[in-house]
Design a protein around this nucleic acid. Structure first.
Lengths: 245, 245
DNA sequence: GCAAAAGTGTTGTCCTTACACCCATGC
DNA sequence: GCATGGGTGTAAGGACAACACTTTTGC
């Protein structure tokens, strides 16, 4: 049943030169979509725009664009983020490819999802085309394309990552209180955490620098402010996760 | 400096219909490469073929081919594995995209790496084109393309996965001894493990079924044989990994 | 002085690690 | 009987989870 296909596939083995081989391949449009998480008012937010396509009128879309000829994939992701938001100095991670043949109404488009976490206050939005804005992760309704699926996949990925690496610091201001840090973890993981245990955990990691400042303008006892010790973190990056032997 | 580009990128926002939009995108050849790990004689093996390209004469290559028009990415990976090896009933996982513009000597080709672990005895190689065979992971030298990088990335991915999920069972015969299981973990993780602790660990997971059989034809005290309890595993799949709160 | 959140320690439980001796089999 | 790996238990240390009271500030 599959023999014909197998034969057919075997035929290109005769092409020994790389250039005609590649010319014989089918080609597809390749795009990048960026899932940018931020944190504000104790809510997890995602950076989205209104889709420019009629068919998706009033639906929200991830920040995406095609990959240019001979453009590195990572570079494409950074470019798109810069073009659409003005942001630079963001770390993006490749998460997964989404390539269902019918995921784009205009024909087949394969997209590579990139994800990042960032500090909303450090990256003010200079561009507001198409209602580019931070939307609440939990309340977004209408997505263009398969962007809900992509966003949720990236959120799962993020939950895992944030438990392996203390990436959460990227979402906070330079100086932050332990309460803010805990709110962040609770927002991303979707659970309540014990305050004492949380603080002990981070104290024992020894990644926080006490800067001897206090919160201002809060209507209760102010908390201490900390900075993240990026240097120390970079040194100790190696970690086993999960079932360790 | 980047303003012109940003303007240019903004221009396609005027295309409101999806079809011309997609037609305006650049297209690239898209391939899938399969990194298939197996285990035999206490060695971790990878399934490779000799490259058919002159430029990579005598170098080893992953099992790969282009993605067809309107073919699901996962389906392409399964098809390629079947065409090249005759194997079916294998689970493949998408791992990452590799897209450096110059990774292929014939022009730009973006490839999606898929990875699997399997039981060499269950999947005898029916096809031997191009010296398709299992090669020792640790001793392979010459790779075509960037296939060393891809393979190593998949190996890292595998080390993580095998600590989160007991995937290792896929690499073993139906019936296996604890020693075989331990050898497998040691081969993949590249470390020595304590025998008693290893056994306790798996005993406590309660994923092994004692089938009341013993090893045969070994020149020492025979070990008990077990089966993997796939049913129970499927039920308990949810797990937190890493820094748990 | 009251509301609101900060800050702090202990205990029990569980998991992980390290470690040594006897047992069954083939030769 | 000896070589080879199979099979087993325990004790110590570390990590995690559960839990309540006092302190500081703004109002």
């Amino acid at each position: 049943m599959t023999k014909n296909r197998d034969k057919e596939a075997a035929s290109h083995q005769l092409i020994q030169d790389a250039v005609p081989l590649v010319l014989s391949y089918p080609k597809v449009p390749l795009t990048v979509d960026c899932v940018i998480f931020g944190f504000e008012e104790n809510k997890l937010k995602v950076l989205l725009i209104k889709s420019d396509l009629k068919i998706f009128e009033n639906k929200l879309s991830l920040l995406g664009d095609f990959v240019r000829d001979n453009e590195e994939l990572d570079a494409a992701a950074y470019r798109i983020l810069r073009e659409r938001t003005g942001m630079t100095n963001v770390f993006l991670d490749q998460v997964r490819v989404f390539g269902k043949p019918n995921r784009h109404p205009g024909g087949r488009v394969v997209t590579i999802a990139y994800c990042s976490l960032l500090n909303i206050q450090h990256h003010s939005l200079n561009i507001h085309d198409h209602e580019l804005d931070w939307y609440n992760y939990t309340t977004i309704k209408d997505f263009a394309f398969d962007h809900r699926e992509i966003m949720e996949y990236c959120h799962d990925w993020l939950q895992k990552r944030i438990q392996e690496h203390p990436l959460g610091f990227n979402l906070l201001p330079d100086k932050f209180s332990l309460r803010e840090l805990q709110n962040l973890y609770e927002a991303i993981l979707g659970v309540k955490l014990d305050r004492r245990n949380f603080r002990k955990k981070f104290a024992s990691m020894d990644l926080l620098i006490d800067i001897n400042e206090m919160e201002q303008d809060v209507s209760h006892r102010p908390g201490k402010l900390y900075k993240f010790n990026f240097e120390k973190y970079e040194k100790n990056k190696r970690k086993w996760v999960g079932i360790d032997f």
